[in-house]
């Protein structure tokens, strides 16, 4: 029993950065923009969120407050991810550059951006490591809710995570409510499905594309911040994101562009990525590492066989909208 709880606990922690990346990309794709720059935006968010908390930590020294560090990290990460997405939006929405190429470029740019500024901070610090102090580390550590966290099994299963885990779940629920329960959400989905029709109905396509893509990028940035502040405990590590952004892109397909399914999918992908550490089946470890992607392929095949209109990629995703070409 304890072992299963340990495994689910590890799966949630592994799935959280993926969930942020996936939610950001779902929001982006709902507007008809296929942004393959998730990895890059995660790097940008990771290094900026870290830099905001780290520089605040240095300047405040002994007076550092964990809460303020958290706010700085969130704002820094969101702003940097959004900036990356804004560049992408300008290139694809305004200048109508190819979405695939722009996204890939953003990944390369973001990776360099992250490593460059991360290394710069590491080199300028006395010990050779850019690291936050114990107060900030504690703020990103597991929460300790009185009574609840102490319940056997349930406490560890539900109430023993860092606040970012709860934030990611809240973001998923918020997005789902936005897509399915608000008029703006309906408009956004219309833009993603058929921008010409949406345009004819009086929806400002450009504005929707810009805002959805930019906020989506900000959410991806939070995923990067999670990796640096939680997984690496507030120490800058070279190449820290190491491909999580790409798994998030696959997870969007797995989740069928639905925030609820993204919750389940990220837990499943997180679980598959740590499964070999807890359940030993005696098969080569490379097979375990393949499992999430095999799952994605199977889902792709199933959805294309079923051809469900509800759970498929927004129709206009990947193509730019040009009013004069209607």
């Amino acid at each position: 029993m304890g072992k299963i709880i340990d495994m689910i606990n590890a799966a949630v922690l592994a799935g959280t950065p993926l969930l942020f990346g996936t939610l950001g990309e779902i929001l982006t794709e709902k507007s008809g923009n296929l942004n393959l720059g998730v990895e890059g935006m995660m790097f940008m968010g990771g290094v900026s969120g870290f830099a905001a908390a780290y520089l605040y930590n240095i300047s405040a020294a002994q007076q550092t407050s964990g809460l303020i560090a958290v706010i700085f990290a969130i704002l820094g990460a969101f702003a940097a991810g959004a900036l990356g997405a804004l560049i992408y939006s300008f290139l694809t929405v305004t200048l109508r550059a190819n979405q695939n190429v722009t996204g890939l470029t953003l990944t390369i740019f973001g990776t360099g951006f992250g490593n460059f500024f991360g290394e710069h901070m590491a080199i300028s610090s006395p010990g050779g490591f850019a690291a936050v102090d114990n107060t900030v580390k504690a703020a990103f550590g597991a929460v300790d809710i009185p009574v609840l966290s102490k319940i056997p099994y349930i406490g560890k299963l539900l109430f023993s995570y860092n606040f970012m885990v709860y934030l990611s779940v809240f973001t998923a629920l918020l997005l789902a409510w936005f897509f399915y329960r608000t008029r703006y959400g309906l408009n956004l989905r219309a833009v993603g499905e058929n921008p010409a029709t949406a345009d004819a109905a009086g929806i400002n396509v450009t504005r929707y594309k810009y805002i959805a893509t930019t906020i989506g990028g900000g959410i991806c940035g939070l995923g990067g911040m999670y990796v640096v502040m939680v997984t690496c405990s507030g120490v800058w590590v070279h190449n820290s994101i190491s491909g999580l952004g790409w798994i998030a892109v696959a997870l969007v397909i797995f989740a069928a562009w639905d925030p609820y399914r993204a919750l389940i999918g990220s837990l499943l992908f997180g679980g598959l990525s740590i499964m070999r550490l807890y359940v030993q089946l005696g098969i080569p470890m490379q097979i375990y590492d393949m499992l999430p992607f095999v799952g994605t392929v199977i889902v792709l095949i199933l959805t294309s066989v079923r051809q469900s209109r509800q759970r498929s990629q927004p129709k206009s995703c990947g193509t730019n909208y040009f009013r004069e070409e209607r």
């Binding site: 922690l13 990796v227 997984t231 820290s240 190491s242 990525s273 470890m285």
Partner: peptide, 17 residues
């Protein structure tokens, strides 16, 4: 094993396990 020389996410997960 992490099956990689530099993958902080995997290294952290293995350490936790």
């Amino acid at each position: 094993y992490t099956n990689s020389w530099n993958d902080p996410t995997k290294e952290g997960q293995v350490a936790k396990a």
